[in-house]
């Protein structure tokens, strides 16, 4: 998107609301982190707008989170997805199970020092999650990071939207998140 337009829009919002709240609808806010932060910092005074965004834990290292606090971020919604998979998204690599819980908790608690609201998103029903252990690990996660709000997403079909990633012809079982519960 056009950064000049983004800046104009943020300035415009301050003419309409004293202290607006902006929800970023990017699939993953901050992929071009410094470009966005530069644009926001250039457009409006620090902390004059409250921002909320969905972003990956892999982008939420402490220097980034500090900068987000400074510009006015009040809520962040990272995807953990599973305690047994998708480690790239949560910057936990090959860690699994309780080891991943501890690692994520450390990061989530760090984020909470800067940003007051964090909703941690999980996907319900992945093949890698079986039996009661995923839920037991989430309970441990809540114990260790009581400030976080876990949200479970149900699966629905992606259909043709994910066709570029299909590897098996004739199948229609691509899935994605539909509901947050």
């Amino acid at each position: 998107m056009n950064f000049d337009l983004l800046k104009r829009d943020l300035r415009f919002l301050l003419t309409k609301h004293k202290h607006p709240i902006v929800g970023w609808h990017d699939p993953n806010f901050g992929v071009r982190f410094h470009d966005y932060m530069d644009a926001i910092e250039d457009a409006v005074p620090a902390d004059s707008i409250d921002f909320i965004a969905e972003s990956s834990l892999s982008l939420l290292a402490e220097p980034h989170v500090k900068r987000m606090k400074a510009v006015g971020f009040k809520g962040i919604l990272p995807g953990i997805e599973s305690w047994f998979s998708l480690g790239d998204k949560s910057r936990t690599g090959s860690r699994q199970g309780m080891e991943k819980v501890r690692h994520v908790c450390e990061q989530v608690n760090m984020i909470l020092e800067y940003i007051p609201y964090i909703q941690t998103n999980f996907v319900l029903g992945l093949d890698c999650d079986e039996g009661p252990e995923p839920f037991e690990l989430t309970k441990r996660f809540v114990d260790l990071s009581p400030g976080a709000f876990p949200a479970y997403s149900l699966l629905t079909a992606f259909g043709q939207a994910a066709r570029s990633t299909w590897n098996i012809s004739g199948s229609t079982v691509c899935c994605r998140i539909l509901f947050r519960c």
């Binding site: 998107m1 983004l6 829009d9 902006v22 929800g23 970023w24 609808h25 990017d26 699939p27 993953n28 806010f29 992929v31 071009r32 966005y36 997805e81 998979s85 998708l86 998204k89 996907v123 992945l126 699966l155 992606f158 939207a161 994910a162 570029s164 990633t165 299909w166 590897n167 691509c174 899935c175 994605r176």
Partner: peptide, 15 residues
């Protein structure tokens, strides 16, 4: 507001 479009659907739960 939106700053970027186009989820690539490359997460394993989407592929």
């Amino acid at each position: 507001m939106i700053g970027s479009l186009g989820c690539p659907y490359t997460c394993s739960f989407a592929s």
